[in-house]
């Protein structure tokens, strides 16, 4: 046999590591959350006469934004696909039911809901048992009279908290991981902090957000001041 006829050994592909799997799931989740978003705009105290702020949720036709409204907190959930968002909403309802029947209606606080969501997100993205990350994010708004907080639960399992009744006005944004879209969405929402908002102004903001984020639907709702102390 001549040398030319000798088969060259095929180079073996390097085995995929846990880190590669994590990166792949992270990239996929970011892609799924590229445009859709949920944002809470906390208004300045001087202008918060009737409303504490606004919630904006942006999503496409195949997606849906859900809201869990309990006695102590409300959660605004966004994600893709709809099935995962539904599961998170069902889980929050189940948790609420269990807390209310086993303990009391007063004791289902936002920390329990946030803990459950972040645990699921962290487990699905970090464990090799799960092929896909859970691309669901939520903003939890406390209705408690003391220590009320805004909590953001991200798809990585991270969470961020900020006081609701104190501190500077600001925008809390979940989702919208496409950098260009995020920049535009943030600039539009930051614009709300600087001027008074009328009903027509809100409609204009919704139109701008739809265009900037590249989503079909943007819904907004005001967060009333009813849960101030």
């Amino acid at each position: 046999m001549t040398d030319a006829k000798k088969k060259k050994p095929i180079p073996k592909k390097p085995k995929s590591t846990a880190l590669d799997a994590f990166n792949a799931k992270d990239a996929e989740a970011r892609k799924r959350l590229a445009g859709i978003f949920v944002a809470f705009v906390k208004l300045p105290a001087s202008r918060a006469k009737k409303v504490r702020g606004f919630i904006f949720s942006g999503y496409n036709n195949s997606e849906e934004a859900k809201t869990y409204d309990g006695r102590n907190f409300e959660a605004h959930i966004i994600g893709s696909p709809v099935m995962q968002v539904d599961e998170v909403e069902t889980m929050l309802k189940t948790l609420g039911f269990l807390w209310e029947t086993r303990v009391s209606t007063k004791d289902y606080h936002s920390y329990s809901g946030r803990l459950a969501l972040t645990s699921i997100n962290q487990a699905t993205i970090e464990s090799s048992q799960f092929p896909r990350a859970s691309a669901v994010e939520a903003i939890f708004l406390d209705k408690r009279t003391t220590n009320a907080e805004v909590q953001r639960a991200l798809y990585t399992g991270e969470f961020f908290t900020a006081p609701l009744h104190a501190g500077a006005p600001r925008v809390f944004l979940c989702g919208c991981y496409d950098p260009a879209r995020r920049r535009e969405v943030e600039s539009i929402l930051n614009g709300l902090l600087r001027r008074k908002v009328s009903a027509s102004g809100l409609r204009a903001v919704v139109r701008k957000l739809r265009k900037a984020a590249g989503v079909r639907r943007v819904v907004h709702q005001s967060v009333p001041i009813r849960f101030s102390s």
Binding site: E87, M91, T94, L95, L98, W99, R102, V103, S112, L115, A116, S119, I120, A123, T124, Q129, F130
Partner: peptide
Amino acid sequence: HRDLVERIVRMSV
């Protein structure tokens, strides 16, 4: 996964 959700629900309450 359903078992993950159930585990987390049990952990929280």
